[in-house]
């Protein structure tokens, strides 16, 4: 035996033989792990006077490529969602809300498709695949919290939520750094610039997943700014 095929030796009952879903979708014995576990959420359009909290529903969590497809192939496509619905695909343990402590100082990249309220299923699928496949950011970035599709009246929108909003570190940390280095201003500005660059790189990858023409802009805004403006249409902090 040469072990050329997945380390298999002989016989069909070799317990060591690796069987992928491509070999046999009914009898595979290995699956493909994702780097993170993810949770799919759904926002139900209001039909009465419920709180937004009651409309946000956790659908399911998963941590393998195979599980993702089992879900995707058996759930309502984004193109068939009613107005005021959202899908949110977030890292497990993060609620898709500004109020979640892990989102408080974060922000999001977003792009609005105007002139229709029916999502393009391929666009939404490609964004989800980029998120679970870990191709939106570098290892050390640790920025991506989740991705969202919103169906609204006359438009639909996709978003990518990030952990930071390119802000300088918290006052406490900055003050400590200042005391140590005695150069508070430069340190803070340097961090800010670095944060912005990191987010812009992620924004460009998001834009390329969307396959937008170069002149179309995706815009970044901080959640805190959006909350203060009372809507999700806060002035963009930056765009790519």
């Amino acid at each position: 035996t040469n072990g050329a095929t997945n380390g298999a030796t002989n016989g069909t009952h070799d317990p060591e033989k690796i069987i992928t879903v491509f070999d046999d979708p009914n009898n595979f014995n290995v699956k493909h792990a994702l780097q993170h576990a993810w949770t799919l959420w759904f926002t139900k359009p209001p039909s009465g006077k419920q709180d937004w909290n009651e409309l946000l529903k956790e659908v399911i969590s998963f941590d393998s490529v195979e599980e993702f497809w089992g879900i995707y192939n058996n759930i309502t496509p984004a193109s068939e969602l009613a107005q005021k619905s959202d899908y949110h695909l977030f890292k497990k343990g993060v609620r898709p809300e500004w109020e979640d402590p892990q989102n408080k100082t974060g922000g999001r990249w977003a792009y609005t498709f105007k002139g229709g309220n029916r999502a393009n299923d391929d666009v939404w699928l490609h964004i989800m695949l980029a998120a679970i496949g870990e191709t939106l950011e570098e290892d050390a970035d640790n920025e991506v919290m989740g991705v969202v599709v919103n169906i609204r009246k006359g438009f639909w929108r996709v978003g990518l939520w990030t952990r930071t909003a390119g802000q300088a570190p918290k006052k406490g940390a900055a003050a400590a750094a200042a005391a140590a280095a005695n150069a508070a201003a430069t340190t803070t500005e340097g961090d800010k610039e670095e944060g912005k660059k990191r987010l812009e790189k992620i924004g460009r990858r998001f834009k390329s997943v969307l396959q937008l023409p170069e002149q179309e802009l995706v815009e970044f805004s901080g959640h805190a700014d959006s909350a203060h403006s009372g809507s999700s249409r806060a002035k963009a902090k930056f765009s790519v």
């Binding site: 879903v21 491509f22 979708p25 490529v65 497809w69 089992g70 995707y72 192939n73 058996n74």
Partner: peptide, 9 residues
Amino acid sequence: FQSVFKEKP
């Protein structure tokens, strides 16, 4: 995987 794995969760 899209056309290969279609099982409900």
